[in-house]
Computed example of a mutant assay.
Amino acid sequence: MTDRSVAVLAGGLSHEREVSLRSGRRLAAALRESGVDVREWDVDSSLVTQLRTDPPDAVVIALHGGEGENGSVQAVLELLDVPFVGTAAQACRRAWDKPTAKAELAGAGLDTPDWVALPHSTFRALGAQAVLDAMVDRLGLPLMLKPDQGGSALGAQVVTDRSEMPAAMVSCLAYSDTVLAERFVRGTEVAVTVVNDGPELRALPAVEIDARGGVYDYTARYTPGTVAFHCPARLDDATQARLAETALAAHRLLGLRDVSRMDAVVDEEGRVQVLEVNVSPGITETSLLPMAVRAAGMDLGRLYSALVERAIARSRFT
């Protein structure tokens, strides 16, 4: 791949900018080790001009949150006919909106924790406390309150008492206009990466997440030493197989492409409860995708080099 030029897009203006920059640097280094000519581009108002005047052979998106996952950057790349690794714009939008994705998953028969999503305007018009009480009455406690869009667990909080609901709602609304209240599921938290670097879509070994504080929040995700990871997860073969099947089914159902990561909980009855599916998994030193890649005996740079080749080949037939 020494004759390929690849632009890694990172940074941007979302709340996850710093995480994205870390992902971008690690991915760029891995691709360079595989012999790829890599350009690292921050995403700002110069992006379209850069793509027009100095077009790479392909783009790899290492953006997290905002335009990098909601389909906006992908739509621009599609407008400019620039090959890119990752999910097409329309499917990005579907996966980015958590209530929409959960409804599709549930409609297809996959398990996902019961939920309700309400915009800020509903709390304002009907009275925040009355609506929050109705959420608790319907879903019970504990609850996970989180923004309906976004990643890295920003704004997410576990609520164990009614008195905590108002503060949790405010935390969510700092990152999105809609609050997603989801029944908190006790069990083993896992992440399963799906890749399509060859002829067949495949699931990599599941990563088990054992957060010291009991919740895999933003601090736990990006502070080394606060979480114990096990890959493969410490689950029996049958459960591992169900996790892989569920991740593959979710990837196909939502129309995702190249790479995704399913976050889930294996509940106390052994059911796989899908929390969400990410179109731009993190690639930092504490991220889950690189752990799964290592456990599968793969090299991160070679994996993404193969995905780049697929993106370029795909563009020739569209």
Rank of each mutant, 00 (worst) to 15 (best):
A228S: 15
T284A: 03
H251A: 08
R302I: 10
D299R: 03
G282V: 13
T223F: 05
V277R: 02
E285R: 13
T223E: 06
Y218C: 00
R212D: 12
T239S: 06
L235D: 08
L256R: 09
P232K: 10
P224L: 06
L303R: 06
E285F: 12
G301M: 08
A220L: 08
D217A: 11
R212A: 07
E276L: 15
P281F: 10
M262S: 14
Y216E: 15
R302V: 14
T246W: 00
I283K: 06
R252Y: 00
L300K: 04
D267W: 00
R261Q: 06
H251W: 01
A247Q: 15
A296Q: 12
Y216K: 15
S287W: 10
G213D: 05
G301A: 09
E276A: 14
R212M: 09
R294N: 03
L235Y: 04
R234I: 03
Q240Y: 00
L288C: 12
V266H: 09
G270P: 09
C231P: 05
F229Y: 14
S287E: 04
G213R: 11
T284R: 09
G301F: 07
L248H: 09
D236N: 14
A238G: 07
M262F: 01
L303S: 10
R234C: 02
T246H: 03
R294A: 14
D217L: 05
V266E: 10
A244K: 05
G282T: 13
E269L: 15
A247C: 14
Q273N: 12
A241S: 12
L248M: 15
F229W: 00
V293K: 06
D217F: 09
G213Y: 07
T286G: 04
L300W: 11
H230F: 08
T239N: 13
M291L: 00
L256T: 00
A247D: 15
R221Q: 14
V265A: 01
D237S: 15
V279C: 05
R212C: 06
G255D: 01
F229H: 06
L235G: 11
E276C: 12
G297S: 02
L288M: 13
Y216P: 09
R257E: 13
V266K: 12
L256G: 04
T219L: 08
A264I: 11
A292H: 13
Y222T: 09
E268P: 08
Y218A: 05
A296Y: 10
E245I: 03
A264W: 15
H251C: 02
R271Q: 09
Y218N: 07
T226W: 02
G297I: 02
G282K: 10
L288T: 13
R257H: 13
L254Q: 02
S287D: 03
L275R: 13
D299C: 07
H251S: 05
V293L: 04
V272L: 07
Y222S: 09
S280A: 10
E276T: 15
I283H: 04
A241L: 13
D236C: 07
V227A: 04
A244N: 12
Y222K: 02
G282L: 08
A250T: 08
L256Y: 03
D217H: 06
D299T: 02
S280L: 12
Q240G: 05
R271C: 09
N278G: 01
A292V: 14
